[in-house]
């Protein structure tokens, strides 16, 4: 496979509470022949708090990093975090369309940013640049007990003009990526409903209520696991699940797993390499693995066992008909 290379911005969460997202993404990207290069000495993108202060200021915090990428002579930056992605995309969108805005942002920076970097989510790179066939070709294991509700979070494909990716109301990229990885994916009506993560600390109860709805809808969809692409969603739904249970009197126990961790499991990597021991609600019980060959054999045997039965039934039906 031809090597692909991208500038990679992991973001602050992936150095702390979302370490397993970074670990599993790197493992999977390597397996798919993608090289990730971090800009030297990157800084925080500014995220939500910066844009409650000022739009130029927020764009400058993001653009400092885009500037570093420009210096690496890379045109595409990928980040797994939807919040970082939004900060970069908004800065790029506004600066490249409005010269006065661009000038104001650059006044705050040491070095001017020339708007030469396009940012894409790591999900988008996997879905579009690597593609479903290559994703499927690398699968070694099947997890027969796993039923996944793919949860995109609120901003991965919104607003469409800025996100330029997937459908703003019913995204399917993660559904397709996981399906290609041999995973049973359920239709999930709440795939984009906001879980409230940004307010977890100051507004705990409100957030617990929003999370409870997401968890409940996943169960309704017949899932026993939620796949996520956002470090804030993961933290909120996993770490606070017990809090949700206390607030709501519920007893949710649903593992919240990064889609890259699930891909890594399907690719035969060890749970440890993928940081599976770092999630709070364990997925051990639902991620039993068998090799693809064993799985195919079982399916064959099942089909064979059904056939004679089916033949018998048909014969019996025919007899009664006659």
């Amino acid at each position: 496979m031809a090597e692909k290379e991208y500038a990679y911005f992991s973001g602050c969460s992936l150095e702390g509470t979302a370490k397993e997202y970074d670990e599993s993404l790197r493992v999977v990207m390597k397996a798919l022949g993608v090289n990730l290069v971090e800009p030297d000495d990157w800084s925080c993108c500014g995220s939500t708090p910066a844009h409650t202060v000022d739009h130029v200021f927020a764009a400058a915090l993001a653009a400092r990093n885009l500037c570093l990428v420009e210096k690496m002579n890379k045109e595409v930056l990928t980040t797994p975090c939807p919040s970082c992605l939004m900060a970069f995309k908004k800065a790029q969108y506004n600066m490249s369309r409005d010269d006065a805005f661009k000038g104001e942002v650059n006044e705050l920076l040491d070095e001017a940013y020339n708007c030469g970097v396009e940012s894409k989510s790591s999900l988008q790179i996997i879905y579009e640049d690597i593609g479903l066939d290559a994703i499927a070709a690398r699968v070694t294991h099947i997890m027969p007990d796993l039923k996944v509700a793919p949860y995109y979070g609120c901003i991965l494909s919104r607003p469409p003009e800025i996100a330029q990716f997937d459908d703003p109301e019913n995204p399917v990229s993660m559904d397709k990526v996981l399906t290609a990885a041999g995973i049973d994916v359920r239709d999930f009506a709440f795939k984009m409903e906001c879980c409230g993560a940004a307010f977890g600390v100051p507004k705990q109860e409100m957030v617990n209520r929003l999370s409870a709805k997401v968890l409940e809808m996943a169960l309704d969809a017949g899932a026993n696991c939620i796949a996520v692409a956002c470090p804030l969603c993961q933290q909120n739904l996993d770490l606070r699940q017990e809090q949700v249970n206390k607030t709501m009197g519920s007893n949710f126990n649903i593992p919240i797993i990064y889609f890259t961790q699930l891909m890594g499991l399907a690719y035969g990597f060890s749970p440890k390499e993928l940081g599976m021991d770092k999630v709070i609600v364990s997925a051990d019980k639902i991620t039993r693995r068998i090799t693809k060959e064993e799985y195919a054999k079982i399916k064959e045997e099942e089909a064979a066992a059904k056939k004679p039965q089916k033949a018998k039934k048909e014969a019996a039906a025919e007899e009664t008909n006659n």
């Binding site: 000022d54 021991d277 770092k278």
Partner: peptide, 24 residues
């Protein structure tokens, strides 16, 4: 789970970031 560090990690260019705050 070793997910949160007790000590901050400060980047080399922290002063450059602080400059953005100050200029603003």
């Amino acid at each position: 789970r070793g997910k949160i560090s007790l000590f901050p990690k400060t980047i080399k260019g922290a002063d450059k970031v602080a400059q953005i705050f100050n200029r603003f």
